[in-house]
């Protein structure tokens, strides 16, 4: 699990698509439709907490094993980082 602090870079934001009834992550020239868990993770990116802290908070909220949540959060954010929709910085 990464000790980095994930955040949405300039030009990336979430938007509620009323037509689809889904939350969308909007970036330069691309858009990704988020499911509820995906949106919950993105909503936690405050630019202050580490991935470890975010995963622990989500595990508590959803009553899920922190190990499983940590793996899912790391994979999800890495996928978005590869698409340049999430960035990470050292604490």
């Amino acid at each position: 699990m990464s000790n980095a602090i994930p955040y949405l870079p300039r030009g990336v934001r979430t938007h509620y698509d009323r037509i689809r009834g889904r939350n969308v992550l909007l970036g330069p020239e691309r858009a990704l439709m988020l499911d509820e868990i995906g949106h919950a993770i993105i909503a936690e990116l405050d630019g202050k907490r580490t991935e470890t802290q975010i995963a622990a908070d989500l595990a508590t909220r959803y009553g899920a094993p922190v190990e499983a949540v940590s793996v899912d959060v790391a994979e999800f954010l890495t996928d978005l980082a590869d698409k340049r929709l999430v960035e990470r910085r050292d604490p």
Binding site: V24, L25, R30, A31, L32, M33, L34, D35, E36, I37, G38, A40, I41, L58, A59, Y62, G63, A64, A68, V69, D72, V73, F76, D79, L80
Partner: peptide, 12 residues
């Protein structure tokens, strides 16, 4: 809602 693997699907 229970925890499930998060998904982000690209809209083309």
């Amino acid at each position: 809602m229970a925890w499930t693997k998060p998904k982000a699907v690209e809209i083309n």
